[in-house]
């Protein structure tokens, strides 16, 4: 099982260690930061899969932090953790930060695990998607290059019944 890394950002040490303990039990690698600024520095230096941040912090709020994460590290899943159900924050989190999930304090450990798991799944899927897209694009370019060298090579002719029609060159090439 590949080890995923979770970044936990909260200004309160006890919250950080509680989250860390819970997530470590799930065999995640956990790194913690006490502020948004510290979190951004850690993101630069470490491969991180999911960031969980408290909202109400001095200086940078969690929402501001996660917006920057979205802009700078597209691949990182974003979860916000907040002490009170403020609809305005929720709406902003979804519209501006494109947050994956909204977690409320106190959280339920099982719910936390499930959400982190799903966020990781999505991150992995998105990454694979991007990789596959890159492969497809690469192959397309290869075919275009071939076509310029051998015009018509990327096209297949068929008759009315769907059988492939070969010309003489092709017959020769295939030694038929």
């Amino acid at each position: 099982m590949s080890e995923h890394t979770i970044l936990v950002v909260d200004d309160e040490p006890s919250i950080r260690s509680a989250l860390e303990r819970t997530l470590r039990r799930e065999n995640y690698r956990v790194i913690t930061a006490s502020s948004g600024e510290e979190g951004l520095a850690l993101l630069k230096a470490n491969p991180i899969d999911v960031a969980i941040s408290d909202h109400l912090m001095p200086q940078m709020t969690g929402l501001e932090f996660l917006k920057l994460v979205r802009d700078r590290h597209q691949d990182v899943g974003r979860i916000i953790l907040t002490g009170h159900a403020d609809t305005e924050v929720a709406i902003k989190a979804i519209n501006e930060g494109e947050i994956y999930r909204f977690l409320r304090k106190p959280w339920d450990d099982i719910e936390l695990k499930v959400i982190v798991h799903l966020a990781l799944e999505q991150v992995v899927l998105a990454r694979e998607n991007r990789q596959l897209l890159a492969t497809v694009r690469q192959q397309g370019e290869y075919i275009r290059d071939l076509e310029t060298l051998h015009p018509g090579i990327s096209r297949v002719r068929r008759d009315d019944e769907g059988a492939i029609v070969l010309d003489e060159d092709e017959m020769r090439l295939l030694a038929l």
């Binding site: 919250i15 509680a18 303990r21 109400l56 002490g83 009170h84």
Partner: peptide
């Protein structure tokens, strides 16, 4: 009440999580 809930939620959160641990 909202302020009180918010203030209490923070310690409550890690106490609950720690109890699970």
């Amino acid at each position: 009440a909202a302020g009180a809930a918010h203030e209490i939620n923070n310690p409550l959160a890690f106490v609950v999580s720690n109890l699970e641990t």
